[in-house]
Design a protein around this nucleic acid. Structure first.
Lengths: 114, 114
DNA sequence: TGTTAATTTCGCTATTAGACGAAATGACAA
DNA sequence: TTGTCATTTCGTCTAATAGCGAAATTAACA
């Protein structure tokens, strides 16, 4: 029950749902997600830790970046069903479509002054 | 998106999940649900209005009582999938099993001094 | 019509959650 | 090793939410 409630709480925030949908397109680092959501890095990091806590996403070190990706190996039935339904449900959402466009053009190299 | 977030918010409270599971067994009035949850009637009523708002449940007048039941006619894919998954997921939860026993023995006639 | 009983709404309090900026951490590069 | 940059953690503020009791509402019935 506790786990289930954590899953639903994780899903009950707009920015966290947006992050999950973005990650269906490709792996992203914190600063890329921040650029798309338009909120501070610390807040993004908090959201990511909540999503990671319920095993919706995985993190993976890549130099000084941390890449986040969907956890596609979960055995949790709720997690899996929801990740099947979400894209279907939000296909036509204007905000999500706009996020998808940004995901395609977001460039870590421009964001971070390398 | 707004609707989806409302659905997940509705599901992110323990007592509301308990109510949904109880209603898989039979229709219940507010005072019966109150007796099982052990919280005040006004709080139960609030939870029910939240569940009704996202169309998880229906209300139906029956004399001076209001019977609440699951809405099995929803076309919302998230709602339907979740109601399929919930019982499966919480089958073995001790609290839910205890609620189920109480649902079987709860008696409106004893609760309300008729 | 007036009373009683079930339910809902209202006002309040305590806790939780999201947001921010600043400070701390960790990893690469000079 | 020292500096830089991405990320995380911490402290604080504000908004939202679950809980309660009391008042309002609604429906049956005397």
């Amino acid at each position: 029950m506790k786990k289930l409630l954590k899953i639903f709480k994780a899903l009950s925030d707009k920015n966290r749902v947006r992050i999950l949908l973005m990650l269906t397109k490709k792996k992203l680092c914190v600063c890329e997600i921040q650029d798309i959501l338009g909120i501070t890095v610390s807040t993004v990091s908090k959201h990511l830790s909540i999503l990671r806590d319920v095993e919706f996403i995985n993190d993976e070190k890549d130099g000084k970046w941390v890449n986040y990706s969907l956890n596609t190996a979960s055995k949790d039935i709720v997690l899996n069903q929801i990740m099947l339904i979400l894209p279907f449900y939000l296909n036509d959402d204007e905000l999500i479509k706009s996020d998808f466009e940004k995901v395609n053009t977001v460039c870590r190299k421009n964001l971070c002054n390398i």
